[in-house]
């Protein structure tokens, strides 16, 4: 079963709010490394994890490493498959237009947005993964 030659589908699941605990900050570090290892990486934001993609956050007074800007440039790290749970947004009163862009299309220069998906669509994607790293 161990076919290391085949490209792995790896999904990072972000479930927690971006501040207050270090989970999201360190999850980001994992995303960037996994992406560098030529795996098919996707990232899903669920539950309070959706707050990580909310635009206009100023964390300068928290004293922690300023990592939020990386979410606005995920595409630069070859992380293009970024999904957000529709219900989680709705339950928290967040509109899709409040979400940050995750970078620019390298050909057109157009902003790339995270894709908002239903539970069913996310479930389907999860079934296609070799590894799911949940943070």
């Amino acid at each position: 079963m161990n076919e290391s030659s085949e490209v792995r589908n790896v999904m990072v699941v972000v479930r927690k709010a971006p501040h207050g605990t270090i989970y999201v900050q360190e999850a980001l570090e994992v995303m960037l490394i996994v992406a560098a290892y030529s795996m098919n990486i996707s990232v899903v934001f669920l539950d309070d994890g959706v707050y990580a993609l909310k635009k206009g956050q100023d964390t300068s007074e928290l004293g922690s490493k300023p990592f939020m800007s990386a979410f606005r440039a995920l595409v630069d790290w070859e992380i293009e498959h970024v999904y957000v749970d529709r219900d989680a947004l709705k339950n928290r009163g967040i509109n899709e237009n409040e979400l940050t862009e995750i970078g620019e299309d390298e050909n057109t220069g157009e902003p790339v947005h995270p894709q908002v998906l239903s539970h069913k669509e996310i479930y389907k994607l999860m079934q296609e993964q070799h590894t799911i790293l949940s943070f």
């Binding site: 161990n2 792995r8 790896v10 994992v30 490394i33 290892y37």
Partner: peptide, 15 residues
């Protein structure tokens, strides 16, 4: 480094 985690993903049937 975290690269070891990536390596484990590549080498394992399940993580």
């Amino acid at each position: 480094g975290l690269g070891q985690l990536a390596k484990m993903i590549l080498e394992s049937d399940r993580v």
